[in-house]
Amino acid sequence: MTTSSRLADTPLAGELIRGALEIESTGRGLLPHRLPAWARAQCADGQLHMAESQPSGVRLVFRTRATVVELDTIPTKRVYAGAPPRPDGVYELLVDGRPAGRGSVPGGDTLHLDAATGTAARRPGPAGTLRFGGLPDRMKDVEVWLPHDETTELVALRADAHVEPAPEPDRPVWLHHGSSISHGSNATVPTGIWPARAARLGGVELVNLGFGGGALLDPFTARTIRDTAADLISVKIGVNLVNADLMRSRAFGPAVHGFLDTIRDGHPTTPLLVVSPLYCPIHEDTPGPAAFDLEALAAGEVRFTATGKPDERASGKLTLNVIREELARLVARRAADDPNLHHLDGRRLYGEDDFAELPLPDGLHLDAAAHRRVGERFAALALTGAGPLAARGRRRV
Results as ranks from 00 to 15, higher is better:
Q42N: 13
G125T: 07
R131Y: 01
G101S: 10
T129A: 11
R131S: 13
H49Q: 14
T151H: 05
A66D: 08
I74P: 02
A51W: 03
L146E: 06
P55Q: 02
Q42F: 01
P84M: 05
L48T: 00
A41S: 15
L135W: 01
V69D: 06
G101F: 07
L113M: 14
R102W: 10
P36I: 15
V68H: 03
D96P: 05
L60K: 07
A37I: 09
D137T: 01
G82Q: 01
A115T: 08
Q47K: 12
W145N: 10
R34E: 08
Q54W: 00
L94W: 12
L60T: 08
A100V: 03
A121R: 15
L35S: 07
C43Q: 08
T67K: 10
A51V: 07
L135H: 11
L93C: 09
A127F: 04
R131L: 07
Q47H: 12
R123V: 12
G133A: 14
D88N: 10
F132P: 01
A100R: 06
T117D: 05
R131G: 04
P126C: 04
L30W: 11
H33M: 14
D149P: 10
E143L: 10
L93E: 03
G134A: 04
D141M: 08
D72G: 07
V61L: 12
D137A: 15
G46W: 06
T129N: 03
R98C: 02
V69H: 03
P106K: 06
L154D: 02
A83Y: 02
A66W: 02
T119D: 13
L146F: 10
D96V: 09
L135P: 02
V61N: 01
A121D: 15
P147Q: 04
A121P: 00
G29Q: 05
G108T: 09
G82V: 02
L154W: 11
P55F: 00
T151P: 15
L31W: 05
L35Y: 01
A100G: 11
P106S: 08
M50R: 14
G118Q: 06
R138L: 10
A83I: 00
D88K: 05
D141W: 01
V69I: 15
A115F: 14
E150P: 04
G89E: 04
P124V: 08
R40E: 15
R65D: 13
